[in-house]
């Protein structure tokens, strides 16, 4: 019983964390805590086979699968707190409380007979007892799970498979494209300038300065540009100050000549 009273609060808190955590990875970790605690509760309740299966299948396979998919779709994304349906959270809380009340009334009305315990059923060993049930009384259901497994594997393969619609572009195609861009749009076919060239900061997030004083945005790596982490080059306050110091003089010299 001690195990139960130690684990039950942890499980409830972790389950609440599953609802409240804003990041999906934190929710997954909370769920892993619940599942491992459940495995321990199975072990306490004379179910050593389910204890092993819970650890291997749930925390081992299923949680790994969840984490893999989280990595695929982007881990650092967190849910927005804006409700898309008005009052959804309040309504869900009310429904949840009503549900809990209903269930607790149901549990409260149960006439609890004395717990028989599994000592007799587990006399030949828990695994042997389960096997005797699985392969006699529940053998049809067991066969159906085999069919279910095969269907699931095929379904996952079909759903996750992606047909390649266009052939991948080869080096030759890229080269032809570059020359066509040069002919039609006048785009320079060579290497773009590297970031930081002729700029105040010699850093990869600073766009290169072109001879006419404008910045070459495409010299900054695209991932930095998408995240909005590039410096503004000429718009930098330091550069602006420096230009203000020297700019007018050069212009005047030009005008004198």
């Amino acid at each position: 019983m001690t195990t139960f009273w130690v684990l039950a609060p942890i499980m409830v808190i972790a389950a609440m964390g599953l609802i409240l955590a804003r990041k999906a990875v934190h929710a997954a970790l909370c769920l892993a805590v619940v599942m491992i605690s459940l495995a321990v509760l199975y072990a306490v309740q004379d179910a050593p086979f389910l204890f092993a299966v819970q650890i291997i299948v749930y925390t081992g396979a299923i949680m790994m699968l969840f984490l893999f998919v989280l990595m695929l779709v982007g881990v650092d994304r967190s849910d927005s707190l804006v409700e898309s349906i008005k009052g959804q959270r309040l309504a869900a809380a009310v429904v949840g409380i009503l549900f809990a009340v209903t269930l607790s009334i149901g549990v409260g009305q149960v006439v609890v007979s004395s717990t028989i315990g599994l000592d007799q059923a587990n006399a030949d060993g828990n695994v042997e007892g389960l096997a005797a049930l699985l392969f006699t009384r529940y053998v049809i259901a067991f066969e159906f799970t085999a069919a279910l497994m095969i269907t699931a594997v095929l379904g996952a393969m079909v759903l996750a498979h992606r047909e390649r619609l266009v052939t991948p572009r080869s080096q030759t195609d890229l080269q032809k494209q570059r020359m066509r861009d040069y002919a039609e749009q006048g785009r320079h076919p060579g290497n773009p300038p590297t970031p930081g060239v002729f700029a105040l900061h010699n850093a990869v997030d600073t766009p290169a300065l072109l001879p006419d004083g404008t910045t070459a945005e495409e010299s900054v790596p695209e991932s930095l540009r998408q995240r909005g982490q590039e410096r503004q080059g000429l718009d930098d306050s330091a550069v602006q100050d420096r230009l203000r110091e020297i700019g007018p003089d050069e212009d005047e010299e030009d005008a004198d000549r």
């Binding site: 299966v53 299923i62 279910l148």
Partner: peptide, 26 residues
């Protein structure tokens, strides 16, 4: 299962786990 002293409940839990694994994959 522990209350009733037989293993049918544990068998049911086992089947639930199998179905859950298939369901997660899909």
């Amino acid at each position: 299962a522990r209350q009733h002293g037989n293993l049918d409940g544990q068998t049911a839990a086992f089947f639930v786990m199998v179905v859950a694994a298939a369901e997660v994959v899909i």
